[in-house]
Design a protein around this nucleic acid. Structure first.
Lengths: 194, 194
DNA sequence: TGAATTTGATAACATATGTTATCGTCGCCG
DNA sequence: CGGCGACGATAACATATGTTATCAAATTCA
């Protein structure tokens, strides 16, 4: 939500810079939980190195909804704005280096920004982008069969498949690990036709 | 996006009022298309009477994603902001009365507002709300089985089931009409256990 | 290094869901 | 009034996907 938007509206850059010093650098192991489902988000998280996933738990069975990599930042926007518990857990997949900016500073920063004319534009742009992202994920989930979603991942975001363990990918695609194996096996035998 | 937010930040009310006169009232028949998939949204749409659905087409087979009723307004936000074609068709389900505010006025209104401090807050609030909505839909789609989604609809939004033809509901739930019939039949026989 | 854990493939079976076809009801419109 | 199209239920069958169990390879870690 924040520092990865630097330079998008150069007029706002001084605001980001001012808060850089409040970030806390952390080196964390794989499978470290950065934010637990059902708790209120306390930090803006920026990933310098490594990768993380967002998921929610359903009867002990994880459903992964998104992956994040280097130079991406994340927060539970609504959890910040409304002080409500978020519905996702954020967990590192690889050993990672992250920067955390405590909530209080994020709030203060947004207060400062809210009287800046370009801020409204930034927010609109960012919101439109996030909306588009969620809608696209949603539509793809409804429209495409798991094979198609896997192939899309393979061609459009191969880095995910390279770096992320397969059972997380299965969970992201909405199928069991067994079925993802079947899909890969069919693909390898060239038996898939669209 | 606009008039249904009146009174949320009273400081902004004068802005909405100023644009009321540019709205066009229209009475339209059932199954009227207000916005076609793949075209750029030209109007903010406010529903005074009736109901509409948003859907996208997949091989001649509709997938409904949302229903709208009286006193709700809608636009394809990204289509407005980025001037890109939207991915949904907006179609009336019942004979309806709608108000249209042409895009140019919406843009002008947002320009005016972007220097208002409360506008940034409104945008953040609205964005958080829409994000929450899409995320909830998405999560519900992933987490719940069709029966559960149907039951949720039955208890939480019964007006939808009362007013909307069943095949649209099937498409919204992500199942075939046949399967929705099966679900209803099982429910009627009290054979569903959670 | 060696044991434990994680990861992934596969088979066999169970269940959920789609597809097609048929039928009946209802409401709208000429 | 009569026919036609929209709507919905149901059966029969086909397919997609989940579940459980087992095995093998890779990775981690004490």
């Amino acid at each position: 939500m924040l520092f990865h938007f630097k330079n998008q509206f150069p007029q706002l850059n001084p605001f980001w810079d001012k808060y850089l010093e409040f970030q806390q650098r952390q080196e964390v192991a794989a499978k470290t939980i950065l934010l637990a489902e059902g708790t209120v988000s306390q930090n803006y998280i920026f990933i310098e190195k490594g990768c993380v996933r967002a998921f929610f738990n359903n009867n002990g069975d994880d459903k992964t909804v998104q992956f994040f990599f280097e130079n991406e930042g994340l927060t539970s926007f609504e959890s910040f704005i409304n002080d409500t518990p978020g519905q996702f857990t954020i967990e590192t997949i690889e050993p990672s280096v992250v920067y955390l900016l405590p909530k209080q500073y994020v709030i203060r920063l947004m207060e400062e920004l809210s009287s800046e004319p370009y801020f409204a534009r930034l927010i609109m742009q960012v919101s439109a982008g996030r909306q588009t992202h969620y809608i696209n994920e949603f539509v793809s989930f409804i429209r495409d069969k798991p094979e198609q979603r896997y192939q899309k991942l393979l061609t459009e975001r191969p880095h995910i498949i390279q770096r992320v363990p397969q059972h997380y990918i299965a969970s992201y695609l909405g199928v069991s690990t067994v079925h993802l194996s079947r899909i890969k096996s069919k693909l390898a035998k060239g038996k898939l036709h669209f």
